Amino acid sequence: MLINCAAYQDGRKLADIDIESISDYVARPECFVWVALKDPEPEELAVMKEEFGLHELAIEDAQNGHQRPKIEEYGESMFAVIHTVEMDEAAELLIGEVDVFVGRNYVLSVRRGTRAGFQNVRERCEREPKLLKEGSAFVLYALLDDIVDRYFPIIEAMNSEIEALEDRIFERNDSAASRAIIQELYSLKRRLVILQHHIAPLQEAVGKLTGGRIPSICEGMQAYFRDVYDHLERIVRIIDGRREMVVTAVQVNLGMISLAESEVTKRLGSFAALFAVPTMIAGIYGMNFQSIPELHYKYGYPVCIGVMFLVDCVLFWRFRKANWL
């Protein structure tokens, strides 16, 4: 599906153009063409290949999708694969892909599996004609910057989830609740791993545009791409920190479970001791021997019961003082 197809000159929009006119504007060195496609059919990509003269390997990657985030050079053009991350109502991650073909005087963006579009990026570029005069390199930067900025709300939502789970860990929970917390922590860790899997490679790719051998298309834009790189570096560090927090939270939760089990064990042991002393005394006087002390004493029974009660009272007081009961 064709979303937008427009020609620009000196940072200003000339007009929305037809697909058949793309090659005519591309042939004009003072112009550049920006085309946006959404979930295109192979036939549409074939037309774009002819109009822009795109490399067949890049077209093949765009058709197949599911590529690792990367930025590759094909002669005087570049091909970038950027992953988008969105969160649905169930807090599950939705991964999309944006493929960007960049030449001296054209930009072709192809997005798949993304719910949010990039009309705001086009509007931003058109509001900044001085920067848009840089041509296709600035458009690539604007797309990268917008996609990277969309990562931050996802991370903030996960951070809030971690804090909520940490608060629940220190509440008095039964085994079912503790098990649920561990399951949620594991789910959160899995999503953080997925997020890092789709973001970390992009940091490496953008690093190629900030120093060393810069592609000729991006000359003069290093500072802008470095800003994107810094954001990606910050995001990757945050993800690493959150993963460590989740691992620590799991360990703390397991520790709290062990403490709860220890408390139960102490209580059971205390009650067992309270029953053990009377049982021992009753067992001794229940033996079939004739010469047991005080066996025929008139007040032997109440004295025996009193001793049992007194010993249990002392034990109960000691256990209660030690917070075992």
Rank of each mutant, 00 (worst) to 15 (best):
E43D: 11
E43A: 12
E43I: 04
E44C: 00
L45N: 02
L45G: 01
A46H: 11
A46S: 10
V47F: 07
M48C: 13
M48I: 09
K49W: 02
E50P: 01
E51K: 15
E51L: 14
F52V: 12
F52T: 09
G53E: 03
L54T: 01
L54H: 03
H55L: 06
H55Y: 13
E56W: 04
E56I: 15
L57E: 00
I59H: 00
E60K: 10
E60P: 00
D61Y: 08
D61P: 06
A62C: 14
Q63E: 12
Q63Y: 03
Q63G: 00
Q63W: 06
G65R: 07
H66Q: 12
H66P: 01
Q67E: 14
R68F: 06
R68I: 10
R68P: 03
P69H: 08
P69F: 06
P69S: 06
K70G: 05
I71Q: 02
E72I: 06
E73I: 03
E73P: 01
Y74L: 05
G75H: 02
G75W: 06
E76G: 05
E76P: 13
S77W: 03
I82H: 01
H83K: 15
H83C: 12
H83I: 05
H83M: 15
T84D: 00
T84Y: 01
T84R: 03
E86H: 08
E86L: 14
E89M: 10
E89R: 13
A90H: 10
A91E: 14
L93P: 08
L94D: 00
L94S: 02
I95L: 14
I95C: 05
E97Y: 09
E97M: 13
V98S: 09
V98A: 13
D99A: 12
F101C: 08
F101L: 10
V102W: 06
V102C: 11
G103L: 08
N105L: 07
N105T: 07
Y106P: 12
V107W: 08
L108P: 11
L108I: 12
L108W: 11
V110K: 02
V110M: 04
R111D: 15
R111I: 09
R112K: 14
T114C: 14
T114L: 11
R115C: 08
R115Q: 13
G117S: 12
Q119R: 13
N120D: 13
V121T: 08
R122V: 10
E123G: 00
E123W: 07
E123K: 14
R124D: 05
C125W: 04
R127Q: 13
E128R: 15
L131A: 02
L131I: 02
L131Q: 11
L132K: 08
K133S: 07
K133V: 09
E134T: 03
E134A: 11
E134D: 04
E134H: 14
G135I: 08
S136L: 07
S136I: 09
A137D: 09
A137Y: 04
F138I: 07
F138G: 02
L140Q: 09
L140D: 04
L140P: 06
Y141I: 01
Y141Q: 05
L143G: 03
L143W: 07
D145V: 07
D145L: 05
D145N: 13
D146T: 11
I147M: 10
V148Q: 00
D149P: 07
D149K: 01
R150C: 12
R150S: 11
Y151R: 01
Y151H: 11
F152N: 00
F152W: 14
P153S: 06
I154K: 03
I155G: 00
E156C: 07
A157K: 15
M158H: 12
